[in-house]
Nucleic acid binder design. Sequence first.
RNA 1: CGGGGAGUGGCGCAGUGGAAGCGCGCCUGCUUUGGGAGCAGGAGGUCGCGGGUUCGACCCCCGCCUCCCCGACCA
Length: 571
Amino acid sequence: MKASQFYIKTTREAPAEAETISHQYLARAGFIQQIAAGIFSIMPLGQRSLEKIRTIIREEMNAAGALEVTMPVVQPRSIWEESGRAETYVPPLANFRDRREREMVLAPTHEETVSMMGRYGITSYRDMPLNLYQIQTKFRDETRSRGGLLRVREFEMKDAYSFDADEEGLDASYQAMAQAYHNIFSRCGLNAVMVEADAGSIGGKDSAEFVLLADSGEDTILICDSDDCGYGANLEKAEFIKSLNPREVKAEVEKFATPGIKTIEALAEAEGVPTSKTGKVVFYTIDDEVYVVVIRGDYEVNETKVRNMMGGSEPRLATPEEVAAAGFPAGSASAVGIPSERVIADDSAVENPNLLAGANEDGYHLRNINYGRDWNSDHIGDIASAVDGQRCSRCSDGCLKQHRGIEVGHIFKLRTVYSDAMDVKYNDADGNLRPVLMGCYGIGTGRLLAAAVEANHDDRGMTLPRSIAPFEVVIVAVNIHNNDQVRDLSESLATQLEAKGVATLLDDRAEAPGAKFADADLIGIPVRVVVSPRSIQNGGVEIKHRLADPKNSTIHAFDDAIGAILNTLES
RNA sequence: CGGGGAGUGGCGCAGUGGAAGCGCGCCUGCUUUGGGAGCAGGAGGUCGCGGGUUCGACCCCCGCCUCCCCGACCA
């Protein structure tokens, strides 16, 4: 491909709104163009990289036995009513009416349509396992866009859906996808870690996400630092071992005045004890009921864990008005005297004796509060968020280390959430009608590209691996327009490389050499070959890997050039 | 959807109540050709939109739209 016939428009400066490295480089190199908030066009260079990513994904999905399909982006709202998600998935659903006034949605994900596809043909356990996937556009209206391609509203996703007759089958499908994902990310040059995750609003149970560790990511994950443990989970899911305060004989409750003390930290300091000796309270509204959530003072409430414990309804912090309306005291609160069905308690608050807590009277607190004697709860469990440095729940000696990361893939066991709602059933070997067990598996292709840039760049530009770089070799033809030798040799090299299947860009533009070098570095083409009057005088062409020092190239005679280029490409 | 910022040629930015400029990029010609070349000459902007104040608004006032960042949610 000749650069003069391609579409290469690079800029020295990134758009002002580009903050992340990947956004800056993808924009400067002309891979992407922003059209609206979270909506991008992909330009020819970006298209080539994305297509290579798609090809890798297709190869791995096909190898895992999945079958490619295409499902519609525009869907009738009625099928979302059938699954029940028209009500629960409200914010991200973009609605419109067609010209016959039928209510339509832009699909944010495709469980409904794939369930219909499964329902169409799956009638027997003999029809499974089945795995259907597509690479298709999604639109989520309420997700806030951020970081260029890292998070957008319209995005392309590879989404796969498995159908199995039993748990063993589902597990095998899930494991096959996990392996395929490892292969995909590895081939794209990403060292993604698989961590346990919460299933979120998609529904279902077991799930894991694949995360590229990067400070620009918005995902918080915790990974055990023990070499042979391997436990990792995202913040919503991570479990840890809570410390236990020393056992003490239950002491008598004492009420005491604490004028002006509003925080747990201030209370602990005033009493000269650690915050782990306190029980703090947060009010949450769940399904229009206000609950008192109790947790030991040194931990924070994890709303996802609360949601899961309370049956899946989203908790949100209660407003002062709601707290007052529920008849709960606003200041210096505690669970003492609150009906147990309205108390949600972390086990840390239950298991530790003689805690400091509010007196449910402004300006007063209580010493020596004990669960069972002074307060009760019908909802006890782990609702605490893990933080850096806590003990790993899976091994005896590890500590959890907190990281930021970019979520590039997510796999779920949906089980029967959608097969029940959408009536996807089969006959088992005994003739019983059973719901199909489903799984779903997603990879954002654009985000994968952005993540690859986040993981592969330097101060000159992108350093994408050969597997996803838009071109593998760039031939910088210096002075090509007034030097026939340069022109003939560079074109000959390009032709030979193309014949060997190497994606080659011949930079024949009438740009200054420096501009061509800068563009080659910015775009991040793995191998650079220079053909110039000087290189010819020196006996051939110069070959350099993108990651090598800019000045550090080697001269090769023309007869050896192709071999040397291929060798450099392999390195 | 809450909180904060910003909208001026393609991109990055300056600017004043008398109404528009710089750098990069673009076009033409000549000269150049190893890390984003030089000279000369050009093209390109209803200053986000609507209303108001004023003799006069890019500037002041009001409303709206859009974009970005932080938070809640996700691939």
